[in-house]
Every structure is written in structure tokens, then in C-alpha cells.
């Protein structure tokens, strides 16, 4: 049981990680991704360290979602290397990567809409066997999102957008991830809810879960994250600490509307 209260999965992997890679939870080394003949990502390199919140910003079609899907194994890169917890994950399917401790709240939430909220959360813990750990994590999700406790037996498809986003994040948390990939958690939400969701994201991170975040709202994302990457048409245009990115005139003009 790790300090964040979420029980750790795939402990043996991080334990066996070589010293040079220590602390690097996600590392992309010059990956190229193609959809058919369309080059979606070219030579993208990126790293996320233990305990960080890293924001991935960029305009529509820049390749943010593709990057996340590559990390979680839903797409395989044509060249380059994805390393998780210091080890290469070449050839591993999405289900194996999920078991390593990567929780992915995918774009558009993708809930199991005909299952109840509770069943959706249970599905998140699909690859776990520790009953007590699952129960404490369920309790934790309900503490983070008290609304989900009220709606536990309601069908996920009948929830409001904000509640669905809570279920999506909750379901990803139920796998006790060491790193959480969030794809546009604020999409389609009322401003007041966006703030609430980001509050929870910070809280999850403060308990030790590393977070890689995609966000349209670049200012909010950079304020939440410690570092950021800016993607433009499939490659990294800029990267650095959030404060520097916010201060950069290019970023201000293109993404912050200043």
C-alpha cells in the first residue's frame, strides 16, 4: 500500500528500474505515429517525472489525444520508443499498460453508459484482485466526488456532463494508477464545474499520483501544472516550466489570447 492510499500495481517494474531512469514515469523518445499515411506525430519526445502534473496544450489536431493514446497503448508508434517506469513497453497492448499502473480517462469520457455509476467504477478495478484495496479506493473516489455516491445506482448515460466526467476520472482512479492520463477533463462543462474538477485533480496529485493532462484551456492547464509541452501539428514546439510558458509572448498570443 503506497502513501497515496491507492494500492500500487506493477511494483516490481519500478523497483527494477535502472538508476538513470529513476523518477521518469513516462518517457517518449522521438515517436512517430501514423494514421494510415497521415503523419499524426513526428519525433515527439516528452517526459513526465514522478509526482508532477504536466500539461499538454495545443490547438485542435495538434496530436494531443494521439500522444495520450500512444502512451496508453491504444496506438503503437511506427518508430521511436515509449518507456514507462523506466522500461520499454514496445509490443504491449493497452490492457497490459493499464495493468502497469497507467490510468487513462479518455477523450469524450467513454463511459459504459448502460452500466450504473457503481458498475463503471468497478470496471475500473477490473484488473485488480485486492478486495480491500478496491474498497478503500472506491471510498476515496466517493470522497473526492460526493455526487457519485448519491448517483451510484444510476445509469452512467443518464448523468449530466460534469457527473460523467467525474465517473471517467473516478473509473481511471479505481485502477490505482501511478500515473493518470486526463484527456480534456473540462470539455463541455460549466465554468464552475471546471474549477471543481481541477481542484480535485490537484488533490489527486497531492496524494502522490503523477498526472499528464490535456487541456483546451491553456492558462488553467499551465497554472495547474508544473511543466508544460506545446504541440503544434504533430511535434513539440515548446516546452518548459509553466511559469516560463505563461510568460512567453508566443504562447500568450497563440493560446492565452493576451
Amino acid at each position: 500500500m503506497s502513501t497515496n492510499g491507492l494500492s500500487a500495481n506493477g511494483e516490481q517494474l519500478s523497483a527494477s528500474a535502472p538508476g538513470a531512469d529513476a523518477g521518469k514515469v513516462i518517457e517518449l523518445r522521438e515517436i512517430d505515429v501514423f494514421y494510415g499515411r497521415v503523419n499524426a506525430l513526428s519525433k515527439v519526445s516528452l517526459e513526465v517525472r514522478q509526482g508532477e502534473i504536466v500539461a499538454l496544450i495545443g490547438s485542435n489536431g495538434a496530436g494531443k489525444t494521439t500522444t495520450l493514446r500512444t502512451i496508453s497503448g491504444l496506438i503503437s508508434p511506427r518508430s521511436g520508443e515509449v518507456r514507462l517506469f523506466g522500461n520499454s513497453v514496445r509490443g504491449l497492448g493497452a490492457e497490459h499498460i493499464a495493468r502497469l499502473g497507467v490510468g487513462h480517462a479518455p477523450e469524450g469520457r467513454r463511459l459504459f453508459s448502460r452500466m450504473t455509476v457503481r458498475e463503471n467504477l468497478d470496471m475500473g478495478a477490473y484488473s485488480r484482485n485486492d478486495r480491500t484495496g478496491i474498497r478503500t479506493d472506491l471510498e476515496r473516489v466517493f470522497t473526492l466526488f460526493p455526487r457519485l455516491r448519491e448517483r451510484a445506482s444510476q445509469l452512467a448515460g443518464s448523468l449530466s456532463g460534469g457527473e460523467q466526467q467525474m465517473v471517467a476520472i473516478g473509473r481511471a482512479l479505481m485502477s490505482a494508477p501511478k500515473v493518470l492520463l486526463l484527456d480534456e477533463p473540462s470539455l463541455g462543462l460549466a465554468p464552475i464545474l471546471v474549477d471543481a474538477i481541477f481542484e480535485v485533480i490537484r488533490e489527486i496529485n497531492s496524494k502522490g499520483t503523477t498526472i499528464l493532462l490535456i487541456e483546451q484551456n491553456a492558462l488553467l492547464a499551465l497554472k495547474t501544472a508544473s511543466r508544460g509541452y506545446v504541440l503544434e501539428t504533430g511535434s513539440v514546439a515548446l516546452s518548459g516550466p509553466s511559469a516560463e510558458l505563461i510568460a512567453s509572448p508566443d504562447i500568450q498570443r497563440a493560446y492565452l489570447g493576451m
Partner: peptide, 25 residues
């Protein structure tokens, strides 16, 4: 059983099922 729930999840959304750790194949 677990398999039964995995089938339901698969029928609902294959991508989401894969990212919860279900081996779809």
C-alpha cells in the same frame, strides 16, 4: 463473472474496455 462483465464492457465501448485493462482479443 469477471468475464461476463468484460463482455458487457466490450459491447458498450471497446476503447474504454481496453483502457480498463480488459484484454479485448
Amino acid at each position: 463473472s469477471r468475464v461476463g462483465r468484460a463482455w458487457v464492457a466490450l459491447r458498450e465501448d471497446e476503447v474504454a474496455a481496453a483502457s480498463t485493462g480488459i484484454n479485448t482479443t
